[in-house]
């Protein structure tokens, strides 16, 4: 792609920002090598601790600003779990809060220029989605036994249609982790790549580059929204899936 464009100045590598590099040296990437993935996940952990632990250390009845934010997150996710997954789902509140905080903070940290967006990698989102999938399936089977499988046998449909619906439900159930992970990773990857493409335009256009720079500013705002909404959607879908496992009656 870039072979013939060396002289023209229009070299856009929108995917370079997603490259996983070792932090130290240039060696091969083993499973234990500290990489930029490690760095930015560590920053996410630090941010989480600052946001939820340090800000609440005074345990004030009248909260400070930081504590208000922490309580806002807590109340938001707590209410979501209770509303969507039901009262039984509250046992999984720390688990869902973990997913939400990780996804939200990674998305937000990824918006910092020159940073690395861990949640834009399919490897990361696929593991998150598979964790949710396995949790829901195992919890559902454990709590309801074979009754969990009645989810696929739509008893409100005519008998003739039920096998067909069962196949469709089964497929849609197993597509869940795929769509769950691709949605998050794809959204972030797309947004960051688009910003990079526009940045490449800006480098090549001289004085007219105000146009792509303005566009980048606008897209950046949109991406901030997307980062928050995707974390929200990931979490609420986890709650929706969890409702199948712990809720009373599915139909």
């Amino acid at each position: 792609m870039a072979t013939e464009e060396h002289g023209s100045g229009l070299q856009i590598h929108p995917m370079d920002q997603f490259v996983v590099k070792p932090l130290f040296g240039d060696g091969p990437i083993e499973w234990y090598t500290p990489t930029n993935v490690t760095l930015w996940m560590g920053i996410a952990v630090v941010a989480m601790i600052a946001l939820l632990v340090l800000s609440t250390r005074r345990r004030a009845i009248v909260p400070s600003r930081g504590q208000s934010v922490a309580e806002l997150f807590y109340g938001f996710i707590h209410k979501m779990v209770e509303d969507v997954a039901g009262h039984e789902g509250l046992k999984f509140f720390p688990y869902i809060m973990t997913l939400f905080m990780f996804v939200f903070l990674s998305n937000m940290l990824g918006l910092i220029p020159m940073s690395f967006t861990t949640t834009s990698h399919i490897a990361v989102t696929a593991v998150l989605a598979l964790l949710v999938f396995l949790t829901v399936t195992l919890v559902g089977l454990y709590r309801k036994g074979l009754g969990f499988l009645s989810m696929f046998w739509v008893s409100s449909a005519p008998l003739v249609l039920r096998p067909i619906l069962a196949v469709i439900e089964l497929i849609s159930y197993f597509v869940r982790p795929l769509s769950h992970s691709i949605r998050l990773g794809g959204n972030l990857m797309a947004g960051h790549a688009v910003i990079k493409v526009f940045a490449g335009f800006a480098g090549a256009m001289g004085i007219a580059s105000v146009v792509p720079i303005a566009a980048i500013a606008a897209i950046y705002g949109l991406e901030t929204l997307v980062a928050a909404v995707q974390a929200y959607v990931f979490t609420i879908l986890t709650c929706v899936y969890l409702r199948d496992a712990v809720g009373d009656a599915h139909h």
Binding site: M80, D83, V84, S179, I182, R183, G186, N187, A190, V229, Y232, V233, I236, L237, V240
Partner: peptide, 16 residues
């Protein structure tokens, strides 16, 4: 919540 879930489902197919 339903709005966002619906948007998420519709959007996922586009992302595919």
């Amino acid at each position: 919540a339903n709005l966002f879930v619906g948007i998420a489902f519709a959007e996922a197919l586009g992302i595919f």
